[in-house]
Nucleic acid binder design. Sequence first.
DNA 1: TTATATATTTGCCACAGAGCAAAGACAGAA
DNA 2: TTCTGTCTTTGCTCTGTGGCAAATATATAA
Lengths: 228, 228
Amino acid sequence: MAVKLEKNKKYLNFKILSPNLYNEILHYGIAKNIAPGNILFHEGDLAENCYLVNKGCLKLSKLNKRGREVIIRYISQGNITAAPAVLKNELYPVTAHAIKFSEVIILNKIAIFELTRKYPDILLNILMAVFDRLEDLQTRYLALSSDQVENRIAKLMTSLMKNSGMENNNGVHIDIPLSRQDIADHIGASMYTVSRTLSSWEKMGWIKSSRKQITITNPQALTLYEKT
Amino acid sequence: MAVKLEKNKKYLNFKILSPNLYNEILHYGIAKNIAPGNILFHEGDLAENCYLVNKGCLKLSKLNKRGREVIIRYISQGNITAAPAVLKNELYPVTAHAIKFSEVIILNKIAIFELTRKYPDILLNILMAVFDRLEDLQTRYLALSSDQVENRIAKLMTSLMKNSGMENNNGVHIDIPLSRQDIADHIGASMYTVSRTLSSWEKMGWIKSSRKQITITNPQALTLYEKT
DNA sequence: TTATATATTTGCCACAGAGCAAAGACAGAA
DNA sequence: TTCTGTCTTTGCTCTGTGGCAAATATATAA
């Protein structure tokens, strides 16, 4: 029953990495509150600011031709997003929605340049974080091109357990409100197949799920999929 | 008929970016020749060296559970690969095959650290290159999760035209030897579907194709798929 | 509390594309 | 030149999963 909740390395998580630096960074920017569902920046807009998520959680996504979302990743507390796009003076490659009540620190181009000049390690840090994301996406690309939907859901759940899992007496609760559609958009499947799969897992007693809430009651059952 | 062969931005392509720096980098490493089909490094090995491709072309791929390759990207002349993995002191996330007779410059950990210390811009440069790759993969992830196979092949061909296209009197020739299986592994499809699609395009007069060779005779027909 | 909007579930059908098999085409070696 | 191994093509079948529809469940507002 005891599953190792080893948190992933979070290079950009200054909050954990270096509390002092984190507090200094806060002074370089302006705080902004954003309610769930609202958009922080749009794919295709000029990347003028990057954002440090101080509280809450963001969802980064792209739109496909039929107007459906494809979720690229979630950005949780303590992490920066859009830094490379700002440094490169380019467009945001994704759209950012808040999915909880969130507080972000707006860091404009000048601030991020000053910060990287003052603390060169930040650049290395950002590089490593981007590399992590590249690796994550490579792995997901592999999964998308060779795994069945059921496996992909299991892998997503496992990674969410590691990154956003809260242990309680029932099991591990995923601390992000996720609809069936969100999951589908994340792994490249239809909402219907996701719903069917989760229903069957619930019947097996592996998870407990209500509207936008998931608790994994049998993590081992899901981690078995990883090896399949 | 005239298609714009606007080359993609190549942040890591020092050969183009800064010939002097490029020549200096050459002195930091050791040249090594590698024949097509041979492996330069394996996914999962400790990343001790990164490699500057001086001549030829590498294929980066991962293996799925059934032992089939999934191609992540190609690294052509003038580009470095594996720098972040070396800097992070981690494992190679992919396997690198040569697909032509190639010459690579081996840069070990010490060399790459010295270089980034001496020329801080190299780090920024690597960051931007990694970000480019992340963006590319995000776009391909989107395509994989929402486009049909035919569209994905068209998009791959269009991007190969831009990055490795050689114009001649018949059209644009792809300067990388690609089997049907390679294409399939790249876009996450079966070799059979790729073969059927290319055959139909050949009947339409859009491409000319022989064993591992493709020439796009009607680039506009393919670019139309991008907008679909 | 009731009303309204939004999420979820499930039966049903359709089809894109995987995968097998077997023939054919081509390149390099001997 | 012939041989051999590697690609490519194409007919065939099968299935995972998409997507509609309609019922049900759940949250939020009034």
